[in-house]
């Protein structure tokens, strides 16, 4: 089991490194990032200077080496050694140390990418976890009920509603909830993010309700349908007939024997969906104007802030890889047939 986990983690690290390389080449092959830093009134002399100071004049292989070094041991900005040493003497406040794992430095935000991400991550993490819990709990519950009452009114209504919700884009659901539930009907206060430190658990919980619901509804609709399908499939299995032949109560047959088999594929899907959410809540964050990673990505994109974009892609990729590893390890616990000794 431990050997399996270590192997998966090592493979994950290799995947991550490959991803970093591809992302780095893709982004830096696009052009000289110094042009954007240099600003509107850029003279050729100034551009040359900026290019040199930030190390963009060096070959990509060299820059990648520096980036990797930053990831492992950290690095200092500006990149150019002579310039930095001179700066350290004249104006030491302008020399920025970026500790490992350094994802880069955003000239636009005047922050290291790590600082940027740490600043925006709490909203996204809160939102993701909150909506994850909502959608898994209600999605699976309603899905099982729909499967149990297959063909009856409850099932038909549920399937109909999920189809509609699934078809609605997130920005529509978000805008609708914001306009009607919060503004017109005033059922909840206008949502704005409150951290646990500021508003306590209850403040945090209620401040996130609408955006989390917005995110969750889409996934919930998907999970109702998937759970229903998995449970229905599981109910046709021979072991369900065996369970009935033993004289077990219908409730036990459905929830112990039927649902158990459906949970395994749900687990692997849920892990990946959660990881994708960490980087994919852009629309919800935009609609509610919550300062999360999605919004950071959009802003960085608008500003051509390449270091932030690279950092975000790497963090999102790492989240997906990590979620994969966790799902694989959990899978071994959930399904005895893949248990490794």
């Amino acid at each position: 089991m431990i050997a399996f986990a270590i192997r998966r983690i090592l493979v994950g690290i290799v995947m991550l490194l490959a991803m970093v390389l591809v992302v780095f080449i893709l982004f830096f092959a696009a052009g000289n990032p110094a042009r954007d830093v240099c600003g509107k009134f850029c003279t050729p002399e100034k551009l040359k200077q900026v290019t040199q100071v930030y190390g963009y004049d060096q070959p990509i292989s060299e820059q990648f080496g520096l980036f990797m070094k930053g990831l492992v041991v950290g690095r200092d900005y500006p990149v150019d050694d002579k310039y930095r040493e001179a700066l350290a003497k004249s104006n030491p406040d302008l020399v920025i140390h970026c500790p490992a794992p350094c994802l880069g430095y955003s000239q636009h935000d005047a922050l290291t990418v790590n600082q940027d991400i740490v600043k925006y991550a709490p909203v996204t993490l809160s939102l993701s976890i909150y909506s994850f819990v909502l959608w898994i709990f209600f999605g699976v519950l309603i899905g099982v009920l729909a499967a149990v009452f297959k063909g009856r009114a409850l099932d038909r209504i549920t399937v109909g509603i999920t189809l509609v919700v699934y078809a609605l884009p997130t920005f529509f659901i978000g805008t609708f909830l914001l306009q009607f539930v919060a503004i017109k009907w005033r059922l909840v206060p206008y949502p704005s993010y409150v951290s646990i430190a500021d508003g306590g658990v209850i403040g945090w919980f209620s401040s996130l309700f609408l955006p989390a619901l917005t995110l969750a509804l889409f996934y919930m609709a998907a999970y109702v349908r998937i759970t229903r399908a998995f449970v229905l499939e599981s109910l046709t299995e021979d072991y369900i007939r065996t369970a009935r032949a033993k004289g077990l109560r219908t409730r036990v047959v459905l929830f112990k024997h039927g649902l158990r088999a459906a949970l395994t594929p749900l687990l692997s899907m849920a892990g990946l969906d959660f990881a994708a959410l960490l980087a994919g809540a852009v629309i919800t964050e935009s609609v509610f104007n919550y300062q999360g990673l999605g919004l950071l990505a959009v802003t960085a994109n608008k500003n051509s802030d390449l270091p932030v974009l690279i950092g975000l892609v790497i963090v999102a990729g790492a989240a997906v890889i990590l979620a994969n590893i966790i799902v694989d390890i959990l899978y071994a616990y959930v399904d005895p047939r893949v248990r490794l000794r």
Binding site: D238, Y239, R241, A245, A261
Partner: peptide, 24 residues
């Protein structure tokens, strides 16, 4: 009928691999 099933009448199925629950 449920109370008789498994107690008075029991059944052995054809393919024991699929007739047993794989997770228990």
């Amino acid at each position: 009928m449920r109370l008789k099933r498994g107690k008075e009448v029991a059944m052995i199925f054809q393919d024991p691999l699929s007739a047993l629950h794989p997770y228990y």
